[in-house]
């Protein structure tokens, strides 16, 4: 069974249609890259998948693990292993990272019928996973994303991904604004979580991240549709030639 099946997905935000018929299937263990010019609808796709209430699905369906994803609340999707690394992680003043993460992890465990972690167990887990992305201990004691640098926020996203061990993770421009070292750390974090069961969607503009995570499939989104799909060679061509040829092909 496919992990994710998107059929003819149309969606809008603030009354404006952004997605105009997306079709995409992802099987366990696959890594898919989604590319496309700015405003093509890439981030809208991730917002729809995670259930952002600011976006409205006007047509189409999404099956996740065989279930109707669109009927599930955002938190239920998370419990079922869907994870989004936000392009712009949200700052939440006054809510500490520890408290935030413990609430999230235990909600997931409760959903899966597991007992809540004790404080000791939880802190040990935090320590282990923090090491994955080399996240400073003091960040963990601050409010969620508050006062974090751009790189710290992205590392914090991957740290949360490590904590929640998702089945399908979406990395929405996780590489933007990262320097070379931070990109390596983030990529290694992502690669460590790879397995035969887990899949990822990687939204990016840059070659470097794709070199690290090596997707088997590359899709080009333009004007709310996937206009071209292929293997890694499609990504190489985009990096070499840009999107103009795709636009011409699509419009011509």
């Amino acid at each position: 069974m496919s992990l994710l099946e998107i059929h003819n997905l149309h969606a809008s935000a603030a009354g404006k249609e952004i997605l105009r018929g997306i079709d995409l299937t992802i099987n366990p263990g696959e890594v898919h890259a989604v590319m496309g010019p700015n405003g093509a609808g890439k981030s809208t796709l991730s917002a729809i998948l995670t259930g952002n209430p600011q976006y409205e699905v006007t047509q189409g369906e999404i099956l996740y693990k065989g279930r109707n994803l669109l009927e599930m609340k955002p938190e239920e999707r998370a419990w079922e292993g869907l994870f989004l690394s936000f392009q712009y992680p949200v700052e939440i003043p006054g809510v500490s990272m520890v408290n935030f993460m413990r609430t999230a992890v235990n909600a997931q465990r409760e959903y899966r019928g597991l007992p809540a972690l004790t404080a000791t167990e939880f802190l040990r887990m935090m320590r282990e996973k923090r090491a994955v992305v080399q996240l400073d201990n003091k960040l963990a004691n601050r409010s969620v994303n508050e006062g974090f640098s751009g790189g710290e926020k992205k590392r914090n996203e991957i740290f949360q991904m490590a904590m929640l061990e998702p089945t399908l993770s979406i990395l929405d421009e996780t590489d933007s604004g990262l320097d070379v070292d931070a990109l390596r750390i983030v990529s290694e974090g992502v690669n460590r979580l790879k397995s035969a069961e887990r899949s990822s969607i990687v939204i990016t503009h840059y070659q470097k991240l794709l070199e690290y995570v090596q997707p088997q499939f590359v899709h080009i989104v333009y004007r709310g549709r996937i206009v071209k799909s292929g293997g890694p060679e499609l990504g190489d061509r985009i990096f070499a030639e840009g999107f103009d040829w795709v636009k011409q092909e699509f419009e011509g």
């Binding site: 259930g51 955002p74 938190e75 998370a78 989004l84 939440i92 935030f100 609430t103 999230a104 909600a107």
Partner: peptide, 16 residues
Amino acid sequence: LDPAALFYMRTRGIPE
């Protein structure tokens, strides 16, 4: 309450 913060938390599995 900040709706963006609320959504962020829900995507991490924290019930609304």
